[in-house]
């Protein structure tokens, strides 16, 4: 069998499927527990439904971007690995670089030379060893970071909200900065995304358009993409 036949074989689908099932199971368990806990902390059923709807809408756009990244991985390391790695731990950038380092170590250039079974094995192992630290550290540090953050916030009950709000703006400012400094069409898309969002938020402040509010982000994003492509 050649490397891609092995990479796309049934045993590989099953082995990779274990991780995908685990990710979905975790998500379902956490959502179930959070919904059960909601009334206890004063979150209403209506708020839960709004959260679900909004998150579902927000995920669609980025999912398509990840999907197109996955398709490039399909060609190089096969369907099962591409499917698993982008549902699990990874990001498009990390996976293709790690796979390239793995195959490169036995002299096969990913996407250029023909993939050998050994190169495939090296890619798979490198992707795993390069990423397993994320899960280990985050799993064992999650409750400790909780305590550090509580200390940082001190006795101020608004402290945690201030920390989180500051962090959210910090994260998105970094993401925008990364695109803006390119001074190309991606920078333009960032600016237009912001402008369209501002327009949508201003428009939907009017009660007549209140129903559109949950579509603000989706509409702003799509209009910005179309405008960027046309300009």
């Amino acid at each position: 069998m050649d490397a891609l036949q092995i990479a796309n074989s049934l045993p590989m689908w099953i082995a990779c499927g274990v991780a995908v099932v685990l990710v979905i199971a975790q998500a379902l368990i956490f959502v179930k527990k959070a919904i059960d806990a909601a009334p206890q902390v004063g979150v209403t059923k209506e708020q839960v439904n709004k959260a679900i709807k909004s998150s579902a809408l927000t995920s669609i756009g980025p999912s398509i971007v990840v999907l197109s990244g996955m398709l490039s991985l399909l060609v190089t390391v096969g369907g099962p690995m591409g499917w698993m790695r982008l549902s699990f731990i990874g990001s498009v950038m990390f996976e293709s670089i790690a796979a390239g380092i793995g195959t490169g170590s036995v002299g096969v250039q990913l996407g250029v030379d023909e993939l050998t079974p050994l190169a495939l094995t090296m890619a798979v192992w490198t992707m795993i060893l390069g990423s397993v630290g994320w899960i280990i550290f985050s799993t064992f540090a999650a409750d400790k970071m909780d305590k550090i953050q509580a200390k940082l916030a001190g006795s101020n009950p608004a402290g945690l909200t201030i920390i989180s709000s500051g962090a959210i703006i910090g994260v998105f400012a970094a993401m925008c900065g990364q695109k803006l400094v390119m001074v190309d069409k991606t920078a333009l898309a960032t600016v237009l995304g912001g402008v369209c969002m501002f327009a949508m938020m201003t428009l939907t402040k009017n009660e007549k358009f209140a129903k559109l509010r949950e579509w603000n982000l989706t509409i702003a994003m799509l209009v910005a993409v179309v405008l960027t492509a046309i300009i």
Binding site: K179, L192, G193, M201
Partner: peptide, 13 residues
């Protein structure tokens, strides 16, 4: 362009 537009919209939100 989709992700940059998303980030631009989010920073405004």
């Amino acid at each position: 362009y989709l992700l940059p537009a998303l980030f631009g919209a989010l920073i405004v939100q």
